[in-house]
Design a protein around this nucleic acid. Structure first.
Lengths: 329, 329
DNA sequence: TATCGAATCGGAACCGGTTCCATTTGTTTG
DNA sequence: CAAACAAATGGAACCGGTTCCGATTCGATA
């Protein structure tokens, strides 16, 4: 079967402690080093990392819990986390919950059983149960994308992003605006971003703003858009995400309404695809790679018991497309 | 610190072998069961899975190597793999290589050190080095998306898909067609799909077909499209992937050419987004979830040393959008 | 009540590493 | 050349589980 450190020791005619020292850079004479090196090369020996972490009480695993893998935002964040962690000799264990909130709890427990050194939770909401579970774990947990008082968090500046978008749309002269938001159990998107948008719109002079609620997916957003247009005729629609905006776009083009001539549209996200869509979508681009890198470095610090700021904010930039019409002059 | 099986045994006043038996369903009397259960509940004990797999020589980890996480296809396949594996009590270890081919080799070795029970490699190409490395591992490896004689593979029916697309486009009366393909080191897309398209076009009567090579990303495809249009005026462009087709679309709309009135366009992939794009892209949708589920079940069989067919093929469907104009009648 | 087999349980070895400690070997210095 | 010290090495314990094996307990039967 697989060669073990005992085999190496036997074949090299030394004690296994000497082999271990050789592998970990202890005091070994050149002569025995050579002997051991030779045997290891001949046998393709690879140390069993389970046995290593059993003694070391450190697995160099970091667990990441993501709501889904097939969204632009999460996968970009995940890629960045993975790359950064690997640079620092950690292995990333990604669990996806398929947006089922109870699977988040389950995943937290499962990861703690795997004895990961730390957990990054890309969250969509945060219940009492989450908080309890995390506190019962004896592992550092970093929350990404939601703000919770009790834990270390990395968030986007959703209020400010929303505010700038609201101000921009209102600044183009849009007075009656529909906002396609999401559940308020999502603090980041459902509460902060929304509040930012409302404040921005208000400050910019929009006086007829209506809020509608949709799921995160394209189909539902398309359906809600259709419904809302039956009793409200805004000059602009703001989607809480780009996907939601695309959903609205789907309905609009089906109804023969042109963007931005007949109605304006904007979103949040900044997917690559947005630039091919005609008209290019006006949106907010979050710096997802930066978020991922920051998350990776933060969780490593946490496992080393260094102090980290409880709340860190990742940046964004405003992308002006052609999807919002200027109603002024 | 963390409670161990020894603590439980001590607190319950039994031997640790009894606790182990309790946990694994051996012969334990009701009375001691109750005692142990009580202690375990009080202490929130979770067995250390490293210690378990050390003895068991089985980790219940399956490693998955993916070229990237931020592509629609890979992330859908990954989600399906992960869900299916979890159902069967396996943990998925996802490594992304950021499209660097040498990191695939590195990842294979790294996963074997983690003693995963099996590896699923979502491949973009297959070199001699890959084959050597895989053979030197003593772990079952399943190749997805590429066909290699030596190993078990799951592929899409790329030739047939290409053929149907070629036939369709030619059938609409397009005689001069540009194909935006990729490197032939990618056997699936770069060779089979291409050959299918060429054969389909040929059989459908297209007589001026030119092949161009691009990277997989949108930007490069946009650039190549611009170049090719300088000395070739096809009535249709076929992209090897939807992303490549979007890249072409970007250039076309920048040059003021309308799809499909001025030029027709099609792709491969079937992303959600394709239906919002106007015009809806004609494309081939692969059944990525099915591929993932099949991959998960196959690798489990392989770890159990069951025989599996060396080559399995996953299906696709033709999606007719509005991006290919009928030049006939 | 003695006997016997099955159920229950504890002790010890094992998985493959790391690390402490004591011993041996080698080198330097007085 | 002996003493003193450092370097090199082997042996044993340990990490936290599982499993084998032998001992004990228990209940049923004769």
């Amino acid at each position: 079967m697989n060669t073990t450190i005992n085999d190496i020791a036997r074949l090299a005619g030394v004690a296994k402690s000497t082999v271990s020292r050789y592998l970990n850079g202890g005091n070994v004479s050149e002569r025995t080093k050579a002997k051991i090196r030779k045997v290891i090369e001949e046998t393709n020996y690879e140390p069993n990392s389970f046995a290593q972490s059993l003694k070391a009480k450190k697995t160099n695993f970091i667990g990441v819990i993501a709501p889904t893998l097939d969204s632009y935002v999460t996968s970009t964040v995940l890629m960045a986390i993975d790359e950064e962690l690997r640079k620092q000799d950690y292995t990333t264990l990604i669990l996806s919950t398929s947006k089922q909130i109870d699977r988040e709890i389950e995943s937290l427990i499962s990861l703690s059983r795997q004895k990961v050194d730390g957990i990054i939770l890309i969250a969509t909401g945060m219940t009492e149960k989450h908080i309890e579970t995390i506190q019962s774990l004896h592992i550092p947990v970093l929350i990404v994308a939601q703000e919770v008082e009790q834990f270390n968090c990395i968030i986007n500046d959703d209020y400010q992003a929303g505010f700038e978008m609201g101000q921009y749309v209102a600044g183009k002269g849009h007075q009656s605006v529909a906002y396609l938001g999401v559940t308020k159990s999502d603090i980041a998107v459902g509460q902060r971003r929304k509040q930012g948008i409302l404040d921005g719109l208000n400050q910019g002079g929009a006086n007829e703003v209506k809020v509608f609620q949709t799921e995160f997916d394209l189909q539902d957003a398309a359906r809600i858009t259709e419904e809302l247009l039956e009793h409200f005729q805004p000059t602009a629609i703001i989607g809480a995400t780009d996907t939601i905006a695309f959903g609205a776009l789907k309905t609009l083009s089906r109804l023969g309404k042109k963007v931005p001539q007949d109605i304006s549209l904007s979103g949040f996200g900044g997917y690559n695809i947005s630039e091919v869509i005609h008209p290019a979508l006006t949106t907010i681009r979050y710096n997802n790679r930066e978020t991922g890198i920051l998350a990776a470095n933060t969780i490593i610090k946490m496992t080393n018991e260094e102090v980290v700021p409880p709340l860190q904010v990742s940046g964004f930039s405003f992308i002006e497309g052609e999807s919002v019409q200027n109603l002024k002059g």
